[in-house]
Every structure is written in C-alpha cells, then in structure tokens.
Design a protein around this nucleic acid. Sequence first.
DNA 1: GTGAAAGCGCTAACAC
DNA 2: GTGTTAGCGCTTTCAC
Lengths: 368, 368
Amino acid sequence: MSPSGRVTIADVAAASGVGVGTVSRVLNGGTNVRESTRRTVLAVIKQLGYRPSYLAASLSRGTPRTVAIVVPHLTTPSAVMRLAGALTVLDEQGYDTVVCNVDTAGQRDHHLTALTSRYRVDGVIVVSLRMPRRWLALFRRAGVPLVAVDVAFTGVPHTVTDDVAGGRMAAGHLLSLGHRRIGFVGDTRRLAARDHLGFTASNERLRGYQEALAGAGIGYDAGLVRLGPHGAANAEALATELLSLPDPPSAIFAASDTQAMGVLAAADRAGLRVPGELSVIGFDDIESAMLLGLSTVRQPLEDSGAEAARRLCALLRGEPTGPLRQQLPLEVVHRSSTAPPRGSAPPPGGAYVGKTARRPQASAAGRI
Amino acid sequence: MSPSGRVTIADVAAASGVGVGTVSRVLNGGTNVRESTRRTVLAVIKQLGYRPSYLAASLSRGTPRTVAIVVPHLTTPSAVMRLAGALTVLDEQGYDTVVCNVDTAGQRDHHLTALTSRYRVDGVIVVSLRMPRRWLALFRRAGVPLVAVDVAFTGVPHTVTDDVAGGRMAAGHLLSLGHRRIGFVGDTRRLAARDHLGFTASNERLRGYQEALAGAGIGYDAGLVRLGPHGAANAEALATELLSLPDPPSAIFAASDTQAMGVLAAADRAGLRVPGELSVIGFDDIESAMLLGLSTVRQPLEDSGAEAARRLCALLRGEPTGPLRQQLPLEVVHRSSTAPPRGSAPPPGGAYVGKTARRPQASAAGRI
DNA sequence: GTGAAAGCGCTAACAC
DNA sequence: GTGTTAGCGCTTTCAC
C-alpha cells in the first residue's frame, strides 16, 4: 500500500499484476480490456477496498464533473422546485451539484467570484438572479459555461416564461369573470441598491395586468396597486390596505402564490368570503395553491430547472442548445378562489381559463 | 503562458521573478513573505488574471473543502429548511456543499456509494434517512466523517428532537383543551421494502400520542388512527375517513404540518368549522403553519441543519463535538386551529401551551 | 525570505 | 490488449 495509507490505483495494478493504465481502463470506459483481466482487476479492487480519488481523476481529466447552481432565497417554494428539477437531471447525467444559496448581494458576489474559476465546476446555472454585464464577461473569459433560469442574460441560454403575458392572463381571468376593480399586490419595484437581487418578475406581471386592464377599457388606478417586500406577511398587510379602501377591489391579483396566501389571510381577517366577496388569483402554482384551492397562473417550475440543466449538459458536451431563449408555457388554473363579483351577471363567455379546476365546488369559503 | 492556455501559478511565478513556492505562500497563509514581494506577486496575479485551480489545490492539499448533504424529498418544506440552515454555516466556514436529493432507496444507495470515497468530500451530513449498519461501517472505513440530522445513528453525532415527547405534547395540548376523542393522521408504518427510506418520526409521534391518551385514562381506539403515505393529499383522504365515522373525533393530530394542511382541507370539504367543530394540530411549524393559523409543535428546523453543519465542521477540524446525541427543544405553538370541543366547559387550567399564538382571534373559520 | 523539487492519484497518449 | 510515461496545477518540505 502507498505510504499515504490510501489504496491507490498503483496498488491495484501491482496486486493484479497489470499496469495502471489497464486498471484505469476497467474503471472507466472499459474498452480494450480482456474480460478475464477485467474480472481479476475488479476482484482485486473489491478485495483491497480500493476507491478512486475523485480529485485526482478530475484534475487529470481536466473536468470536475460538477456543476454549481446559484439560487436566491432557497427556502421559497418556487426556488426549491427549480432546484429540485435541475438536481434530478444533473444527477442522471452524472454531475455533482454544489448549491449556492444567495440571500444578499454580498453572498451573490462571493459565490460568483468563486465560480469564475475554471476547475471548480464545469458550468453554472443561475436562477432568478440578474447579473451585471461585467459578470457575464468574467464567466465568458474564465471559460465557465452559464445558463440562466427565470432571467434573461444576453448571449446566454436562458429558460424563462413570459411574465407580461402571465400578468395579462391573470388579470384577463378576473376580467372575464366580470371584475372591474382589480387590485394588485406585488414586489417593490426598486429596493435599496444594497442587497437588491434584482428580481423583475413581479414588475412584468404588473405590466401585463396594466395592459389587460387598458385593453378592457379600464383606467389605471394607482391606488389599487400595492408593492412591498416579498413575503406572505407583507402581502397580507398590503392587501389589508386595499380591502379597507372606501371602494375596495372585488378581486386581487397577487404576483406570486406566496403573496396570494397573504392576501387570503387578509381577506379572512377582514371577514370577507373568498371568492364570494373577494376573488384572489396568484402566480406559480406551488403545492399549497392546490391545497388552498387557489386560482393561479401556473408556470412549470420544476421543468424550468430541468430544462436549464439539460441545456447546460448539452453545452458541456459541445452539443447545440437550441435558441438562446427558451420560453416555457403559462396557463391559468381556475380553482375556487375566483368567481364572478357579488351580484354580477354570469360572465358572457365563461371564465377565461386554461385548465379546469381540481375542485369546481361552488363553496370555497372556509379554510380551504 | 502554459501550453494549456491556462494561467498557472508557474506563469505568475515567472512573471514575478519568484518561485512558485512564494506565489503559493502569498496565495495562502502568507507567512514568510516580504511585503514588497507579496505586493508584486499580487499585482502580477491581477494583471495576468490568474485564478487558482480548485482541483489542483485540493488534490495537493488532500482535502476538497467540500461537504455533501444527503436529504430525502428535498421539496418538502422541512427538508428545505434543514438544508438552508446547513448551507448557511457551511458557507461561512468556507465549504462548498454538494446536495444529494434522495427520493428512492436506489438514489440513496447511489449517492451513498459515491460518497464513501475519500477525496470527494470532507464529510457528509445525512438528513432524516435511516441507514443500515453496514453503511455506517463503510463510511467509517473510508474515513469519511458523518453527522446525522433527525435520525439517530449509533456512534455518529446526531442532532434530533424527542418525537415521542412531541407526540405527547400535541396530544396533551388537545387533552388540556378538553378533547377526549382525538384522531391521528400519520405516515404508514412500513412501506414496501423497496423505496422505503425509513422515516420514523411519525411512528414516534404516534407513540407519544398513545402515551398521552393512556395517561389521561383514555382507552386506545385504533379506529381513530389512520396511516398512509406522506403528503397532504393522502392526509386529506385519511382525515375524511375519520370525519365520516359514526362518532367522529373532535380533534385531529397530524404527524406533520403538511399533513395537517390536508386535514384542514378535509374539514373544509366536510363543512366543519375549525376550530369550532374540529381542532387540528400539526407538527414542525413550517411557514404555512403561521399563515394558516395552524396550531403545531414547533421544532427548530433550520437550527437542526445549522447545528449539524457546525458539528461536522468541528469534527473536520479535529475538535470535540460534544455528546453524540444533541437534542433540540420542542414547543407547542397555539394558534387558531385548536380550541375546546363544542359545548365543553372551559378547560380547567387553560390550554397546555408552550407559546402564545400570533393570532389569538376567536374565529379561525374562513380560509385561514 | 525564497527557490527547487517531490509528490498528490489519476487519465490519456503512445509504444509495443 | 496492455504497460509506460508524461503531465494536470498546486502544496509543502527542505535546502540555501
């Protein structure tokens, strides 16, 4: 055994009476090795308890077979699902995945800096995180392939949805039910520079909402739009403001399901029935949405991660990844948190809906 | 520049007119380097755009400065929180973290096999996953340090809670409110061997429930206990069975908040008010629990991950990690999903509670 | 303080 | 088919 106390490929070679090259061959591809030799070597490996050194192999090979995924606010349901989707395919493809959670701009820079080194990871997946151009340049210069999810980088493959269209769909659903006063609860447009990770989805969904309203000939009422830091608790506060307006909205579109949950909580505290007295629609279709009977605009979260991972793998194999921009579909899921406003005539052509509800039950009042 | 096209430490050394040893020294510890030399080298590094090779350093050093965390069913809220907790401290300590999601026994074995190789990771954190003894032996033999979270391994540092006590607390809370017929909804005791990851928390919470009932002089009624695969949807079905019993329970203890959400859904479908006609208590205190006003037994999920990570780091530095078993505290959080049963006298000494509710409002009916 | 040189354990190119 | 050998890029003695 080597002086290091570790069983190396050389030990195996010696004990098997073959050269290290042969051992390496049976370890890897396995081509050009006589069956009997292979068996011997395999036996010796087991007997010696030999375990290959990942590091040595990586160094020699020139690639660590590892990719990094940078994801902000890991604990949010949508982030996890994207991560899970990516992990699944990365796993299948034989890559290790190092996960970099980012909650502040400082952390983002820290991780990004570390990753702009080749020989650390083969490539990186960036989720929902805007990146200054100079960072992109750094990655390109370092030769580290990049793909993005839920954010568009110029010159980089990205998997996204059309959030403006999504906003239109959500508002359109409400409009088609007959609502005219529709509130919006979303993320602050611009946080303090520090620790602002640059999410933009909420803004774009707001734009879609505005377009839909305009299209319906409804004047934009800034008083019906409330923006605040992300999170259900904040959304609850904002919705409460909306609901205590002299002329409150009959429906609220929340920029995410998490925020929609806050809106539902606000409605409950205000003693309003959903959807009887208030309709609520969210965005994302996280797991709780179904449990709560929340109508929402579904985006394929897990798929987005999986697709990005697939494209990164293709990139790493030198295969084409298709067009830079990959756009995933959105669909309205009508559950039991949206209905025509009180005392309204039934909608002219039925609700604007992409998919039928799991529970079309009339009463969605009550806890769920 | 090296033939590889990559700037190496040798290039920096040459350009600085020093030896590679010196460059390495300024890169790392930095001891024994004249200040002027250091500055020169640093300048050259920046100018050449040199980035150290993580792999080469790791191989040479003998440690990858990376740890793996094996976590089943990553998308469940409790798993993510544990992961997030661990990531935070690992990050601070300068470790990369490769995340291994495990949904099947096959995946578990796959990852575990890969990890029983030294020179891949410095150590591994196993979350909520039972492991046959022989695996533990393999890790020990491979010299890969292990710590466990939410599961006890003999001879391995583990960070856990007392689930039996937790079950007693949950049932005790209900009993103290005056409930006598208390249902339980939890995980199947034994799944098919294949793909059974061996969770046991639900079983232990059930035991605690049984103990508490026995302690209160209430005979055990197997008809009030429903077990099924994990998940809110299954829990909803089980709770529906319970609620359609001739003599249904006035309260239900769900083995996890996720399952409690299913129970709430079942109550709603059955047209039962919570807590008026049915009290529900969960376990974990995930984020939605607060939003839903769900009473629950809180365990410090994020902390559990963080603590495990801290202990692993200590282990890696050769420092003591304290007693093998680290037990984190549990507390009842009384929110608005539990109350005295209908028509009961107020409880003799007040509810059995560890902490006051965020929303002690009387009416918890409605969506939240 | 600093340079030279010996590995770390493996892969891959090349000779036989 | 199989052995030999030259690196991969760095850390780390050990002289000077």
